[in-house]
Design a protein around this nucleic acid. Structure first.
Length: 192
DNA sequence: CCCTGATTCGC
DNA sequence: GCGAATCAGG
């Protein structure tokens, strides 16, 4: 794969949107995140500029280089544009999904409690089965790739998150994805 | 362990 | 110019 205009376009767009190099690489296909990062640097947009208005980032007035130094390496401005906002403690919210500062995949339906729901019996069975193996993580222990399916009542001690490995790109493990993301049918018109 | 971007350097 | 390998960090 080569860096065609369109691919570069998409790269620029996604990068300025704050997408990670790996995400961009996945989207583009045929390249690794290293390739993306390399390209990003070559394009000179290592700093996430373009869409995010920097409150105080002066692009350097570019002082006339009179000296004989073809290889200047001034890097006095060191900003931290990327931080890791971990989930903050939430009191009694049924769905404390730690949202990033930007869109991840598509719309994410809030996790319905497995109790009062009639989804496919198999899926439900899978869920209750999985809950035995659940890591039972606390809010603080959740990561991007731990299933964030809440179990129990947040107002009680008997509350935890599934914590199993998530399905790529999803907030839940496979079993919970199964009940969280309904095709929005089958219940509506379930007669087979 | 998972991930992030940054840098180097042979191609 | 390209990107794998490597580095540095969370």
């Amino acid at each position: 794969m080569s860096w065609t205009d369109e691919r570069v376009e998409l790269l620029k767009k996604m990068w300025s949107e704050g997408q990670s190099a790996s995400q961009i690489a996945k989207e583009l296909g045929g390249v690794t995140r290293n390739a993306v990062i390399g390209k990003v640097h070559r394009l000179g947009l290592s700093n996430r500029a373009g869409a995010a208005p920097a409150p105080e980032t002066k692009p350097e007035p570019k002082p006339a280089p009179a000296a004989a130094k073809p290889k200047p390496a001034p890097k006095p401005v060191e900003a931290k544009p990327e931080s890791r906002p971990e989930p903050a403690p939430v009191a009694a919210a049924p769905s404390p999904l730690p949202a990033r500062k930007q869109i991840i995949p598509a719309g994410q339906p809030l996790p319905p409690q497995p109790s009062a729901n009639e989804i496919s019996p198999e899926a439900l069975a899978k869920v209750s089965e999985v809950e035995k193996k659940a890591k039972r993580l606390t809010l603080m222990e959740l990561t991007e790739r731990t299933c964030k399916w809440p179990v129990g009542d947040p107002a009680t001690e008997d509350f935890w998150f599934c914590g199993l490995p998530v399905q790529q790109g999803k907030p839940y493990c496979e079993a919970h994805v199964g009940v969280a993301f309904q095709p929005m049918s089958s219940r509506r018109d379930r007669r087979r």
